[in-house]
Amino acid sequence: MSVTSDEGIIIYRDVHKWYGDFHVLRGITFTMQKGEVIVICGPSGSGKSTCIRTINRLEEHQRGQIIVDGVELTNDLRNIETIRREVGIVFQQFNLFPHLSVLQNVALAPFWVLKMKKSKADEVAMQLLERVGIPEQAEKYPGQLSGGQQQRVAIARALAMSPKIMLFDEPTSALDPEMIKEVLDVMKNLARSGMTMIVVTHEMGFAREVADRIIFFDYGQLVEENTPEEFFHNPQHERTKLFLSQILDY
């Protein structure tokens, strides 16, 4: 069944996934428009990370359709590669390449995958490092940077491929509190510049400020989906209310 891309840049339709016997995604459906910022939240183990990781095939879904910018995610190698090139991801554990310098980390993919000239790739990388605010760290190695700086390099690395969509898998959960702000600032700027973003996070302040929509996951199901104001002030579902009461106490 074919679908036109007018419906949205990401069409996620009735997706199921099992880990062995464990049913981790139970029929998730949502659509996303270009330029939207969606925040996904929920208790741990609810399937939110798995959900976004299926979008760029870090996890494979067993049932349902995932269509990214008009290309369906199937076992077709070409489709997978096309989608991976258009979707960038930032991990909780940064996963920077420790044996390469910061600049090399960012310039690696443009040089090897997009086949840019080395000087051009380095130029692009420097621009991105400036964009995330740490151009002076270019020749350092990841091990010499703080957590917040490393995550910003990771964002630059993902942006180096000029993706249409950026996924963030709990980007600030591994950071010390004083470094969370610098990363969130970069993400806010990114959102304001029009990037389509899906962010899995517990940072509700960020969600309130930047998200167009908030999606709440629990037990592998999409429980509630709403604008931030409605979500926080007028939660519909019982579980949503419970979750909010647990995290908003402090």
Binding site: N56, L58, E81, R84, R85, G88, I89, F91, Q93, F94, N95, L96, F97, L108, A109, W112, V113, L114, A154, R157, A158, A160, M161
Partner: peptide, 17 residues
């Protein structure tokens, strides 16, 4: 760590690269 494999494939590098 497994994250290195994931980051490499997420950035678009194929298995060999």
């Amino acid at each position: 760590p497994r994250g290195q494999y994931e980051a490499a494939s997420a950035v678009g590098l194929n298995k060999a690269l």
